[in-house]
């Protein structure tokens, strides 16, 4: 598949970048689903084989293996359904220009949807998302785009078997998302399949340039993005002051749309 090239710093941020982001999420998701369907297809086929071959010549069916195979199909369908729910929520994040949303949910959703992209590089996510983090106000899909860029940049600089840690923290009137590379640095900077790595934008990783790189999204969110000398990128978001009633829907229900509350 041709690489998705995100616009560079010379390209105005905007709709094209969001489209590229959505396209990348969809291509990773559909690849994942193709694999899920292939497993379901072969497992169902195996079930038929067990009945057909087991019953030949008046032989006995292997009841335990048949039951195990049925459970495998059920499990795979459940996993696939969970992925589809994630994509459904991801789509619904764009229903309103501004809403009140839970940061942890947006991170869980994004990381689930792009997990294959990370695992293909033999990297993994390490999430530390404590409960009780206040809601923030803005466009959740813009936050996901910003995090996607940050994750892509961190990913480009990491050696295989490293991790990308995402941690949320509540302070007085802000929620901070800490994006941290854990493990060895890549010996040579591979070209990211998603975006020009930060190193190509700024050879010396100048924080000012990094801020410029994330500027459009962070401005939209009213967020502050900072990078420490050890490569940790923090996104600080103001918590919402808007009073809201109980949120409709249950985010844990299969097929539920996000509980984002639109802000009029």
């Amino acid at each position: 598949m041709p690489e998705v090239r995100m616009p560079t710093e010379d390209t105005p941020y905007g709709f094209d970048e969001k489209l590229a982001f959505i396209g990348k999420v969809l291509s990773v998701f559909t690849h994942e689903m193709k694999n899920h369907l292939a497993i379901i297809n072969e497992t169902a086929g195996l079930l038929g084989d067990l009945v057909e071959f087991g019953g030949r010549g008046g032989g006995e069916f292997d009841k335990n293996q048949i039951l195990k195979t049925v459970r495998d199909v059920e499990l795979q369908v459940k996993e696939s359904s969970s992925m589809v729910t994630m994509l459904n929520r991801f789509g619904h994040r764009m229903d309103h220009p501004v809403s009140i949303f839970n940061v942890n949910d947006t991170i869980e959703e994004l990381t689930a949807l792009i997990n294959r992209m990370i695992s293909q590089r033999r990297l993994s996510f390490e999430l530390n998302l404590p409960g009780g983090v206040s809601m923030v106000e803005g466009n959740p899909s813009t936050l996901q785009l910003l995090l996607f860029r940050i994750i892509s940049d961190i990913m480009a600089g990491l050696a295989e078997k490293s991790k990308i840690a995402l941690i949320t923290r509540q302070d007085d009137d802000t929620v901070t998302i800490v994006c941290k590379p854990v493990g060895e640095k890549a010996k040579s900077q591979p070209v990211s399949a998603l975006t020009q790595p930060a190193s190509q934008v700024s050879a010396n990783h100048d924080p000012a340039d990094l801020n410029q790189r994330y500027k459009r999204s962070s401005d939209e969110l009213g967020a502050l993005v900072t990078k420490s000398s050890d490569g940790v990128i923090s996104v600080v978001l103001p918590i919402s002051n808007t009073k809201i009633g109980p949120l409709a829907g249950d985010i844990t229900s299969p097929g539920a749309s996000p509980v984002d509350k639109p802000v009029e």
């Binding site: 292939a38 497993i39 497992t43 086929g45 195996l46 084989d49 071959f53």
Partner: peptide, 16 residues
């Protein structure tokens, strides 16, 4: 790299 897929396909092809 999809272990479930590879193992299941392997079983089916061995039966043939």
């Amino acid at each position: 790299d999809e272990k479930s897929f590879a193992d299941t396909l392997s079983q089916r092809l061995e039966l043939r």
